[in-house]
Design a protein around this nucleic acid. Structure first.
Lengths: 235, 235
DNA sequence: CCGCAGCTGTCAAAAAGCTGTCGTACATCT
DNA sequence: AGATGTACGACAGCTTTTTGACAGCTGCGG
């Protein structure tokens, strides 16, 4: 299912002092087939990095001891060029991070949506794999989504999606032809901690359908009492 | 019968302060050939987890001492990455759980149907078994059920089932060619504590037959005075 | 050929899903 | 700063589907 070619499992090190968050990320990654370990402090992170040799690191900036920047410096100081994706608080040090995100690194603001984090990790990995990296394009029937350009087309028609619509569609496409429950969609696409108990998912699906099923046959199907799938109509 | 490959028995730890519920789950699991133990408090759960090394945990959120979240934290703190399926009251802390379940752990609302719980446990186990996990497809004669896409076909014909029909059929197929009593079906597919003492099972079977026996030879057979089976032919 | 288990049509209540409207928040442009 | 536009999600009304109670009928097995 992964779209970057790799023989071995991706090795991910997650560094966050909040264990639930670190677990969350590690668990999602494992479900993608990755190998993930967590560290809850800067020192622990450095120790684990040295022996685990991660392919990518998720690094919270706010750590009890050494902060995220410090960890990065010492990683680099040790000669590791492993790419890093930072996590920062909403109104944190966004600008300083931005400065650090060249060279394939990236950052995300907390609270984030799980799918978005995974998408960024995949992108960073893909880019850091060297020049001539593969474009990532998802296809379902005549629907196409280019994850690099964020272009979405149904046949020839270019669609304009809002960020939420885009994320929901991507998740559906990634998992196609598996049926997803509304809860799964909510849990993966919305930020963790989102309280919205309303019908947001239905609403976004409704809007999505209007945009993409308006040309051609319906692609997003309701599985009553269960959830949604995107796939070519099964006869 | 399990569809994920495993040489040893699955080891399940059930944590619920209501002994009947914990036992119910453990019993069903044992009947599936699993090895199951129960704990009625958070502390006991941690103690048992340490020595039993479960492959999966069913964890009620409402516990007398340490609550479900606390248990999870301490499990994780001890470095256990065992997957967890939570149980919560109907309009309890569903949203808080959501935050924890994004990873791939799952949750179910009480009162639940036993088959649904087992299905989720199987799914979680299957996914956490690593990348490239097997699709789960059940077959009986020319009837096929794909548990991921929820597609059900008789020969080429795609069937559209309601949630209840789907669950009853899945249970029958899973147990095929064993004959199941109406009581067993009722107990496994409907939520525990379901009051309906009417002929619901007969009704659903009737509807199922109309949908799937309409093409080809009958597959669901009545064993008069006992129950139902699904299988090729009753010779 | 009788009696009872099983089958199924009908129907009303409940659940699930869809979508229009609107207020708020945030970003962008002038 | 003010104006304009876009995105999001709460809410509510409405439609469709599902479910199970009830009751009468069927037909199996003795």
């Amino acid at each position: 299912m992964p779209h970057y070619e790799r023989v071995e499992k991706v090795r991910l090190l997650v560094v966050d002092d909040d264990p639930p968050i670190a677990d969350l990320v590690a668990t999602v990654a494992r479900y993608e087939g990755w190998q993930a370990i967590t560290a809850n402090s800067g020192e622990e992170a450095l120790r684990l990095a040295a022996e685990f040799h991660p392919d990518i690191v998720v690094l919270d900036l706010m750590l009890p001891d050494l902060d995220g920047f410090g960890v990065l410096d010492r990683l680099r100081g040790a000669g590791t060029m492993v790419p890093v994706v930072f996590l920062t608080a909403r109104d944190g040090v966004a600008d300083r991070v931005a400065g650090l995100t060249r060279g394939g690194d990236d950052y995300l603001v907390k609270p984030f949506a799980v799918e978005e984090l995974m998408a960024r990790l995949r992108t960073v990995l893909r880019r850091s794999a060297g020049p001539g990296f593969q474009r990532s394009v998802l296809r379902v029937a005549d629907l196409m989504m280019d994850e690099d350009t964020r272009e979405v087309r149904r046949g020839d028609k270019l669609l304009t999606l809002t960020p939420t619509e885009y994320e929901v569609l991507r998740y559906l496409m990634r998992k196609s032809p598996t049926v997803l429950t509304k809860a799964q969609i909510l849990d993966h696409v919305w930020e963790y901690g989102f309280g919205g108990r309303s019908n947001v998912v239905e609403l976004v699906v409704s809007r999505l359908r209007r945009k993409l099923d308006d040309t051609g046959t319906p692609l997003i199907h309701t599985v009553r009492g269960f959830g949604y799938v995107i796939r070519q109509a099964a006869e």
